[in-house]
Write a protein that binds this DNA or RNA. Structure first.
Lengths: 336, 336
DNA sequence: ATGAAAGCGCTAACAG
DNA sequence: CTGTTAGCGCTTTCAT
């Protein structure tokens, strides 16, 4: 026969199912004798309560839905690690769904997860439309949005302060004796890139340093390579000693260019990335970068979600800003 | 008030709940008029059935548990993409759990998922003990094991044939005119590395080519770099023109060494990796490697699992061998 | 302290 | 074709 139920336990222990339930949940006093009989029976039958039935009657599924744009994107997987691990601490289980960045699948996923009675939702994406967000709010299911390019002022999220982090990175390099900077940007119309650019500009200006900017076509390593010629001219004519890039991929692409064109890194120029991807640590020279603590972001997001579910204080009444970390590796050097 | 239930729909439509259920599931004929009334009511109330309740009565949760050693490991995330996407096609949802490679958490995860009534389990790990496996079998819950170093003959899995793939890679290089080969191995006592080595040896021997082997300390890019001096000597004294490595990381480390020591890749030597990791495509020169189709492996695994759940034919009565793919990039060149 | 009974939201005979 | 009824496995009054 299949799984034993609470009835089987009750019968074997010679008590009512209520009593069994009570010892399982410690919900009401039970006499020592009865408790022992029940425990013995549970043990003997290897009884495990059916959480589905329990969820149904308690109206609490202990399920949290996670909708991720693409698990293949490294930082999204990192985010989920944090969500999963901390969720488990609070006895929540993760129901996983991919959206592949398209609004319709996202909506489907939300619908689907809702029928599974998830108590809350974590949405990890780079793109989400205002319409979906409106629908989501109307469903009154608690959710936390972890969108890379966060632009919704009425919806709070967990993130690093890109502007400040870029600023800190430049200041770190200034402290290492650099005076003339180049920022290799990828000028997408997104807040994130704009913030970083602002941080770069502020840092150089406030410290009276030279701060030049050029733009890649895209954000890949190939784009970082392509911008090489242009960068090289500026570096030579302007005496640039340090270049920071919009992300790690572009930085690596640009380093590739340097290697091919007899520019030594970091001897001739220091180059830093942004993001803290794993390749930053595999590449040679190992890349100095700003690591984003994705695991922690996931962990905070799930905590915030659980608090919302339990209707405790909302720890995301404002955006939760978490600190990035400058990881100093071999691609930058000290001038002093 | 909260979510509408089937009762609310019935009341609004002026029919019994059975009728509502019947139109939802198309399980029995319903008169057109009744159907319309029900559909209207469903629409008006935005009614979505509670899958928990449905699962309870149907004794089918439509849930599959996925236990993954570490989502941060790239190929594991790829595997899950396949599992998730195909699972969804069959209306299965993924309950995710991490084990971090330790037996106890793995067992806990299994227990936990079982209480959630998952219908089957996909276990993604590099390490699993025979004891856990025995316990798992005793639970009689269908499962598919995707362990990288698969050694259990009585449990079938989905994998590539490492020996054959390495052999194909060498033969590919032979066709490109290479005669003298070096294999940079990492001599762990695992089946996978041993198979690859065997493939290398067979390929060179059968084609009467020179096939030399050296061993790294570990499997990281640093290890690939460290073996450089030793490799260099052999390459020069033995006229090696192509080196293949146990994995992409070692290959990249070794390329790093070459760059630092004035050995041009691929002009002076062709170097290939194994695995098809993303870095292989970012590195310069871009790495020739054997791509393992992880997504497909996940997809096949979930199909096999679902067939087992439905007690249809077992498509994993033998290991399912899937083909890898040689991805020719810039790190190897043709001699002919 | 304990059992009987009602009910969570749904499906599936059963009877009409 | 349709409504009534009896559960799925569990928690929780309500009596006792």
């Amino acid at each position: 026969m299949s799984q034993p139920t609470i009835k089987d336990v009750a019968k074997l222990a010679g008590v009512s199912i209520s009593t069994v339930s009570r010892v399982m949940n410690n919900s009401k006093p039970v006499s020592p004798e009865a408790r022992k009989k029940v425990l013995d029976a549970i043990n003997k039958l290897q009884f495990k309560p059916n959480e589905l039935a329990r969820s149904l009657v308690m109206r609490r599924s202990n399920l949290i839905g996670v909708i991720v744009e693409d698990l293949g994107i490294e930082y999204m997987a990192q985010l989920i690690r944090g969500v999963e691990e901390i969720g488990r601490v609070y006895k929540y289980d993760i129901l996983l769904s991919s959206s592949y960045g398209d609004d319709e699948s996202l909506e489907n996923a939300i619908d689907f997860l809702a029928t599974k009675q998830v108590e809350g939702l974590i949405i990890i994406t780079e793109n989400i439309s205002a319409e979906v967000l409106v629908k989501l709010r109307n469903r009154r299911i608690p959710f936390v949005l972890l969108d890379k390019y966060h632009v919704y002022n009425n919806i709070k999220t967990v993130k690093i302060d890109y502007k400040e982090e870029e600023k800190k990175l430049i200041e770190f390099l200034i402290n290492k004796g650099h005076d003339n900077f180049l920022y290799i940007n990828h000028d997408e119309n997104n807040i994130l890139n704009q913030s970083m650019l602002k941080g770069f500009l502020e840092a150089t200006e406030e410290n009276s340093k030279k701060g030049l900017v050029i733009n890649c076509q895209g954000g890949t390593s190939d784009d970082g390579y392509s911008i090489g010629d242009e960068a090289k001219k500026i570096i030579e004519s302007e005496g640039i000693t340090a270049a920071t890039c919009v992300n790690d991929e572009v930085a690596i692409g640009f380093i590739n260019y340097c290697v091919d064109n007899n520019i030594r890194v970091p001897e001739d120029i220091s180059i830093a990335g942004f993001g803290g991807s794993t390749i930053a640590n595999i590449y040679r020279p190992k890349l100095t970068t700003v690591a984003v603590p994705y695991y922690d972001i996931g962990a905070i997001a799930i905590r915030a979600l659980i608090k919302r579910i339990k209707e405790e204080e909302d720890i995301l009444e404002n955006d939760w800003i978490i600190e990035g970390q400058i990881v100093r590796r071999e691609s930058t050097k000290s001038l002093s």
